[in-house]
Design a protein around this nucleic acid. Structure first.
Lengths: 340, 340
DNA sequence: CTGTTAGCGCGTTCAC
DNA sequence: GTGAACGCGCTAACAG
């Protein structure tokens, strides 16, 4: 079915394929009467141009590829939403590459630069190493990193060190001195220099600045996810001298913290303060204090930058950095520690 | 860059393009020594076949298309996750079509059946009308509906009427008599016969069976989303005789209900019971009583059925229905009403 | 203005 | 076993 080609239309309209192609791409030089005829034939046959053939001929796909750990990170979805907004405007389609394992990640970094299938590539929350960056640069399609960084690549980022500092500082300002940090694994095979380790630096900086000691037992890491975070916080809370405040590297992990506290009958924020990072959608409902980063906007900016790169090939080779602002959102999960 | 074609490889290996193609698709009839030569050339040039060209030649894309209101419905994301699992196994790529407006929906239903771009189509939570179903059937690619239904199309569904009944019955069994139902708009332009109206029927059935009157003022509808649900529940709670229990057509809407209750200082479940539908990920954390439907599994089953259809063209024309089971998950947001 | 033809890159006959 | 030629459906360049 639907196997009607441009040739059929041409025949039906009594013209050549070139003419049909011209009206399809509304080329100006075609007489109104012929255009009419062709349009009728198209309508009558319910003809739709074959996109693949068109792509091959044009050397352009009108697709953009997006790689991200979508289901591991709710934040990716929110970012994707921003991306989608821009794509729809440009009438581009979206080819999605989810990654949940290191194998998949590596395979993608190996094959993606080929860039048939899409005219531009957006990489979210996955940091390429130098070799991979090189490969990406050599490839034929423009690439933009979102929530990841490499000095030679276009990127939209936040200042993670600052974010970690802001979160910790907030806790310190509240009067906390026993502040724990939970995060996903710093030396993760997923990310080269991940956000978590940058936030960790901010955490250490704030501690140092306030003259507070860094306690190794207050620092836990595990794979990203609610249950893992819950487990870590249970361990934290079982310590002889448990922390009075917890900085979670993501809201997802903060939820695990909240859960653990609740299970132990520990009231937040009275007995324990929790601050997250990201400000994902449910954070508001949970009244979670957190560091807000513009998730939706990061997608919008990333996609916009990508389109710019696709238009001017000079831009493509540069390495622009767009930095988005961070904001502390004080809600109801942080408070001063219990006075002694 | 990366503009190395099969011809370059052929030249480099000193063979014809046909031979290169043969080793690429590991055709048996190629001498081991030549295969070696070709493979070396491929390696040396870092050659990757152009997928678009391959698709055109083969008449097969190795993509599957997925349409859904992704960002409006968290449940779509969970379903997509199931889909992705199967696709990865089959080495298929995912082309995503998000829909948030009626225009977009209609435009997609109009153009998607063309089915270049993908070998199979999955439609999630969007119910085609008869004309659209017809079009889909006439199109060249197999289609499977997930969380939507049409008698002539392949589909994986749940019994929404039963689900509505189960939720309401649970509330009745608890002793509630004043039970409200909030949902998204029944006659939505998005869906032909949406799940919400089926669940509504279950709600009415349960009420009738228990001899409880149906009160129109206990039934509110608005667009899907937390804030809208919150608003509806505020109205409900402001009624002279407010309901003692609320059945929300989705967990997202149940969250809005919880929020409204909390804002009015109404304690759940002591003063108000709330039951949702879906059992999305945060439901567990929120201790939300809900009707569990297999979200992830629906994606898996949908994709699996689609692949079956893609293989046997007979199946493609049939209209199989896979029905997934429902389960009441009692958590902490429902309880007997306050005794009078 | 419009018909014809040559590719786009690859898979696949069909002879050799 | 392997090379050459054709075709997938469409666009663009070139005649007319």
């Amino acid at each position: 079915m639907s196997e009607v080609t441009i040739r059929d239309v041409a025949k039906a309209a009594g013209v050549g394929v070139g003419t049909v192609s011209r009206v399809l791409n509304n080329h100006p030089s075609v007489r109104e009467s012929t255009r009419k005829k062709v349009e009728e034939a198209i309508e009558a046959l319910d003809y739709k141009p074959h996109r693949i053939a068109r792509q091959l001929s044009l050397g352009k796909t009108s697709n953009i590829g997006v790689v991200a750990p979508f289901f591991i990170r709710p934040s990716s979805v929110e970012r994707l939403r921003g991306v989608e907004t821009i794509l729809a405007e440009h009438k581009y389609d979206l080819v999605l590459y989810n990654v949940e394992t290191k194998e998949r990640r590596d395979q993608l970094f190996e094959s993606l630069p080929r860039g048939d299938m899409f005219d531009g590539l957006l990489i979210i929350t996955l940091t390429p190493n130098d070799d991979e960056a090189e490969r990406l640069l050599r490839g034929s399609v423009p690439v933009v990193l979102v929530d990841a960084s490499h000095p030679r690549l276009n990127r939209v980022v936040i200042d993670d060190v600052l974010g970690g500092y802001m979160a910790t500082k907030h806790l310190i300002d509240l009067g906390h001195e026993r502040i724990a940090y939970i995060s996903d694994i710093l030396e993760s095979p997923f990310e080269h220099v991940g956000a978590s380790s940058l936030r960790y630096r901010g955490y250490r900086d704030a501690l140092a600045e306030a003259g507070l000691p860094f306690l190794p037992e207050y620092y836990h890491q595990d794979q990203h996810g609610v249950p893992q975070a819950r487990k870590m916080v249970h361990e934290l809370l079982a310590l002889p001298a448990p922390p009075t405040a917890i900085f979670a590297a993501s809201d997802t992990q903060a939820i695990g913290a909240l859960q653990a506290a609740s299970e132990r009958g520990i009231v937040v924020p009275d007995q324990l303060s929790v601050i997250g990072f990201d400000d994902i959608e449910i954070a508001e409902f949970l009244k979670l204090t957190t560091i807000h980063q513009p998730l939706f906007t990061s997608g919008v900016e990333g996609a916009a930058l990508l389109f710019q790169c696709m238009q001017s090939s000079k831009l493509k080779r540069e390495a622009n950095e767009i930095q988005l602002p961070l904001r502390l959102i004080e809600r109801a999960t942080t408070a001063p520690p219990i006075s002694i």
